[in-house]
Design a protein around this nucleic acid. Structure first.
Length: 523
RNA sequence: GGCCCCUUAGUCUAGUGGUCAGGACGCAUGGUUCUCAGCCAUGAAUCAGGGGUUCGACUCCCCUAGGGGCUACCA
């Protein structure tokens, strides 16, 4: 017989959340915050919640909301509860939670912990100006603090615009422990009677975030450092409402190149941009994880699995970090290297197809990657080097393998190997200038074309043999044929092994391009 | 103005009283080679500054400087 120790699961489960406001795209800072929450949830077997904080009615948009979800999906950060998938603690979008805020606000009023304020924005503005002039701390002066509930109700009935303020205790302090920062405390005298509910009836961020986190049973609040100064206010709300204060972990900011907080003006900060550039999501996740966290002094390349195993909030750094694109590219290249040949081909295939390098009738069963592994890569290009039976896939395999580690960004694939698929590939004028304009070049290319045309078996060995033999015969370095040949065949000075290029191009195309280049070179 | 946080090479970081201050990106040089990438080897480059505490400070304390955040009816 098995005895099961029953515990209240809701009590011990770790619940974390990512709570973006839909006022812009998902940027790397937000993505990093989402990632750390996700990693922590996945590592601990906890629950990852996605909540949309749209209490800023003016700036929130549907597009942003969708963009954020798209970005998270691209990164592979799946959420267990959220506006689209539901959950036990919904709704997961603040604009739909109005009654909850008002219910809790009513409790606060009843307990005398919050009060209505009728000061006009103009008066508040004047007050601030005056305090600024006198070099006093800028805070609300408490004018409406003394209003009785009856007086307030009367004004409300009369239709006076009003807001709800928290009644900050005059003595004492708010304290909390931050997993990243350590102990943190703020004297109440530093705080003022901040706003809970705005005159439009919507809660402020500080109020909504507490009500939501508490009611959604969030155990760990993992968010950006920019929120740490507001945390004491939030602790006050938790306490006033009788809610359990969660654990906090405030993450260091991510900075742009000028060390200022990352923002739109720093260019490539949108996750969408990295998706467009065909970065690998796993690489992005790896790099983002490294911005503010490290495992030890040797490992920095992590698979998603390794990250979820090894991630720890305790090892999160306190220092703000700058986003370094070079390192991002490096990490991306490393991840690409680790892909299986079949995976590489799939990725390259997609990019080439999107960019119009592969005709629509080229069919590959991408739903079934196993098929790709079964393709006998060497088969289609034996014999005369012309593709056999339309097996373009085998050819793609060989091209990608010939490319080797040259491909750092998938986006660059067309630039690297576009000439295999199109005749109107990009031509580097400088390359033509330096390699094809010399007097002796046309003859060499013609001869090379002749020799290759005469080959019956078009494989790498034989092609190399022919090229080197011709060089010997002409008493020139092999490079004298190879370099102009490369420009003639690929349009540039950079390519994989030239003999492989020739084979993969096939005899027909090779000869055709060499002759064409010879013709151009003559002029 | 007030309060708070942060500070190891250009960048991301390891380090917690005694280390030649370690790694990675980037950079430079050399090797491999038909180019480029890659790979291999080598190298330059760091504890923000000043005071303490201590036999001994990157490490602990204080001050200064620089950066950042909050101080909104933004989040």
């Amino acid at each position: 017989m098995i005895t099961i120790m029953t515990t209240d699961s809701s009590k011990n489960t770790i619940r974390v959340r990512f709570a973006p406001s839909p006022t812009g795209h998902l940027h790397v800072g937000g993505a990093r915050t989402a990632l750390y929450n996700w990693l922590y949830a996945r590592k601990t077997g906890g629950v990852f919640v996605l909540r949309i904080e749209d209490t800023d009615a003016q700036r929130s948009t549907r597009e942003s909301y969708e963009g954020i979800l798209r970005g998270m999906r691209w990164l592979g950060l799946d959420w267990d509860e959220g506006p689209d998938v539901g959950g036990d603690y919904g709704p997961y979008i603040q604009s739909a939670r109005g009654v909850l805020y008002h219910t809790d606000a009513a409790r606060l009023i009843e307990d005398g912990k919050a009060y209505h304020c009728f000061c006009t924005p103009e008066r508040l503005e004047e007050l601030r100006l005056e305090q600024k002039e006198k070099r006093l701390p800028i805070k609300y002066d408490g004018l409406c603090r003394g209003l009785s509930v009856e007086e307030a109700d009367e004004k409300i009935k009369a239709g006076d615009p009003h807001i709800l303020r928290f009644r900050m205790p005059e003595e004492g302090e708010a304290r909390f422990r931050d997993i990243v920062r350590g102990d943190f405390k703020t004297a109440n005298t530093e705080l003022d009677d901040f706003v809970l509910i705005k005159s439009d009836g919507l809660p402020t961020y500080n109020f909504a975030v507490v009500v939501d986190d508490a009611r959604m049973k969030i155990s760990h609040v993992i968010r950006g450092d920019d929120h740490i100064s507001n945390t004491p206010r939030q602790v006050h709300i938790y306490l006033a409402l009788g809610y359990k204060v969660p654990k906090f972990a405030h993450l260091p900011m991510i900075l742009g190149g000028d060390r200022a907080r990352l923002s739109k003006r720093h260019g490539a900060v949108s996750i969408d941009w990295y998706a467009d550039q065909q970065y690998l999501p796993d690489a992005m996740v790896n790099y983002l994880a490294l911005l503010g966290w490290s495992f030890d002094d040797k490992q920095e390349l992590f698979s998603r699995k390794a990250l979820t195993d090894k991630f720890s909030l305790k090892k999160v750094s306190k220092n703000p970090a700058m986003f370094d694109n070079d390192k991002m590219e490096y990490i991306n290249a490393e991840h690409f290297k680790k892909l299986t040949p079949a995976q590489k081909v799939m990725h390259v295939y997609h990019v080439l197809k999107d960019e119009g390098y592969i005709p629509g009738d080229f069919h590959v069963d991408l739903e079934n990657p196993v098929d790709l592994k079964l393709v006998p890569g060497t088969e289609p290009l034996t014999g005369n080097g012309e593709k056999s039976g339309g097996d373009e896939l085998g050819r793609l395999f060989l091209i990608v393998s010939a490319l080797g580690n040259r491909l750092k960004l998938l986006k660059d694939a067309p630039g690297h190997i576009g000439y295999f698929f199109k005749d109107d590939y990009e031509v580097d004028d400088n390359a033509v200038e330096t390699h094809l304009t010399r007097r002796e070049v046309p003859e060499r290319l013609e001869k090379l074309a002749d020799k290759l045309a005469g080959l019956n078996y078009f494989d790498r060995e034989r092609v190399e043999e022919v090229v080197r033999a011709l060089a010997d015969e002409m008493e020139i370095e092999a490079g004298e044929l190879i370099h102009p040949g490369r420009v003639a065949l690929t349009g540039g000075t950079v390519s994989p092994d030239i003999f492989q290029v020739i084979v993969l191009l096939g005899k027909g195309k090779t000869v055709e391009r060499l002759r064409k280049a010879a013709g151009i070179a003559k002029q």
